[in-house]
């Protein structure tokens, strides 16, 4: 997949409704539920043994950059959106992009010595993208930088969402090893995960892309 170089400002780049996104096609990324056997606790395995989660089967993915900022736009079907949590048993919709930080980082949450960088968005905290680093299931940790901006919109039973980050953010991040680096003209990989709040999905209860999506940043 190509992250097109576009000549637009950061605001348009970060807007899932910007007309710019209509100019190039979305890559359809197939998603599957995380296997029940990989759920990290016996309780979760017992409760969800029927595998009734992670039903979102595909997401549309687009990427673009303007030389300064890199943006990813995700679009997926979600008939019942949850954007606020008022009660104990409510969970908000969420999405994440995962980038390997080493050649051999496993697609599911990385492993020790082969971490992954995760950009996370949750519908109840809509503007704040969270930068995480993980080196195994259940290990994701929030890092205070770099700044990831997110903007989501739900309409007609679909979410559209943009993650945006400064291309060079890795250079000035205090923990550079924990942050995905991007340079125009180079190739990368990423994976996608989605959580349906209406189905109480959180943590490992999600739909994810089981194969890496190849990504090239246009020079």
């Amino acid at each position: 997949m190509l992250a097109k170089r576009v000549d637009v400002g950061a605001d348009a780049l970060g807007d899932p409704g910007a007309s710019m996104w209509e100019r190039f096609p979305a890559r359809k990324v197939a998603l599957v539920p995380t296997p029940v056997g990989m759920q990290p606790s016996k309780y979760i395995m017992a409760k969800w043994r029927d595998g009734e989660f992670g039903h979102t089967s595909a997401a549309g993915l687009q990427a673009a950059h303007n030389g300064q900022e890199l943006a990813f736009r995700l679009e997926w079907e979600c008939q019942k959106s949850v954007t606020t949590i008022n009660d104990n048993d409510q969970f908000a919709d969420a999405a994440a992009l995962l980038f390997p930080l080493t050649e051999d980082a496993p697609l599911i949450m990385g492993m020790e010595g082969a971490p992954v960088n995760i950009w996370y968005w949750r519908a109840d905290q809509p503007k704040m993208g969270l930068n995480n680093v993980a080196d195994g299931i259940g290990t994701s940790r929030l890092t205070s930088s770099p700044l990831i901006t997110t903007q989501g919109a739900h309409a007609d039973g679909r979410w559209s969402l943009v993650f945006r980050r400064a291309l060079a953010a890795a250079a000035d991040a205090p923990t550079t090893g924990n942050v995905a680096k991007f340079e125009p003209g180079k190739d990368y990989r990423l994976a996608v995960a989605l959580w349906s709040g209406a189905n109480s999905e959180r943590a490992g209860l999600k739909a994810y892309s089981p194969v890496w999506v190849e990504l090239s940043l246009e020079g």
């Binding site: 606790s41 016996k42 409760k47 104990n88 048993d89």
Partner: peptide
């Protein structure tokens, strides 16, 4: 020894 499924009680229940 198997975990027994349950649910999260709501705020009204607490």
């Amino acid at each position: 020894g198997l975990a027994r499924p349950s649910r999260i009680p709501g705020r009204e229940e607490y």
